[in-house]
Simulated assay, not measured.
Amino acid sequence: MNTAPPALLDEAPAGPPRRTGWYPLDVTEVRHLSADTVAVTLHVPTGLRDVFAHHPGRHVVVRHRQASGTSGTSGTSGTELRRSYSICPPPHTPTALRLVIKRSGSGGFGEYATTRLAPGARLELSAPTGTFALPRLPGAHHVLLAGGTGITPLAPMAAHALRRDPACRVSLVHSVRTSADAVLADELAELKDEFVDRLTVLYVLTREDRGSGGGPLARRLDASGVRRLLAAVDARPGPDTTFALCGPPGLVATARHVLADRGVDPSLVRWELFTSDGTPPRAPEPAGQAPGAGEYRVTALLDGRRRAATVLPHDPVLLDALLRSHPDVPYACREGVCGSCRAKVVAGQVTADGQHALDDRERAAGYTLVCRARPRTPDITLDFDA
């Protein structure tokens, strides 16, 4: 997830969004989109409409407690699971809150959602957050590249751009394994009918052979494939062409390298990841200036309040130290992907690897992901509100 430019298609409200607090919402529909993917619609009560007002591209964190000794069963005790999901409103009910959830393994929230979750259940959600958005450039050509469920934020971003700017054009490329995995295809077809002259939708099927060889687009998206797709949608680098990428790290990295090689202005490229390479965070490195044997102090500024904690030698990252006494500190994936724990280092120094959700500008500005950060100095201050 990367920093949005000063002007967006949908202006963000003044001041940072509230980062803490959980809101119970009732599930009204669970619809299977594919064998391992469901669309979950939730009712937002009138009193929470302002809390869940959002702009296309934002996401929420779902908190779920898995009962001890079970797999995917909802409970009030046991392991707490958190997962970040982009908001993807139904096309004909834009005020509803809908999440597209894919099962990616056993025992996680995805398994529970795709096998057991049903209307009438209640889920705990954070308020929407995030900065994934398209630059405000009237009459621009917006080129969107999605891999798998990376289509979830890009589909509403495309619809919003087309409806807000009658002079813009959108080209959307969706890379999936087979045609059965192309979730939201029916909705995109309706959007194409509505904007037939301004919307182009292409699908890349990486594991499905259509005819002899499957055609020029039926292959995994390597660098040459990305270049051919850009040519197919007439994506010419320039001040009036923007790019938004969402998918697994390999696809996003490949596309970013291709765009950089073509001289695309980095400020016109927006990207977000929905999974990581699985690299675990390392334990904190020793610092000779520590006030005690392996002891560090961290102070967090969150929602205008200060929270302090001691980082012990067995804490893998700063997040674990903060959660020990401040469970409201935001986080979700713990893999450096979702950006929920993004904070600015305003005092002291940290070291971190695998910060997939940050771009070079954010790192240069002093931001870090607390789920990946380890201390380098005895005292550190993090600003979650920055």
Rank of each mutant, 00 (worst) to 15 (best):
N2Y: 03
P5L: 08
E11G: 14
L25I: 01
R31W: 12
H32R: 15
D36A: 07
V38H: 04
A39K: 04
G72F: 04
G75R: 11
E80K: 00
P89H: 01
P94T: 04
L97A: 05
E111L: 09
Y112V: 04
A113N: 08
R122Y: 03
L123P: 00
E124N: 09
L134W: 03
G139M: 02
G148M: 10
I151W: 04
A159V: 12
D165M: 00
R169A: 08
V170C: 10
L172S: 11
V173T: 10
T178L: 04
D181W: 05
L191C: 12
L199R: 02
L202W: 03
R207A: 09
G215N: 13
A244R: 07
A260I: 06
R262E: 15
L273P: 07
P280V: 01
P281I: 02
R282L: 15
Q289G: 14
G292M: 04
A293P: 14
D303H: 01
P313G: 06
P316C: 12
R324H: 12
A332Q: 01
C333F: 04
R334T: 13
C338S: 08
V346K: 05
T351A: 12
Q355M: 12
L358Q: 03
D360F: 10
A364N: 09
A373N: 03
T381Q: 08
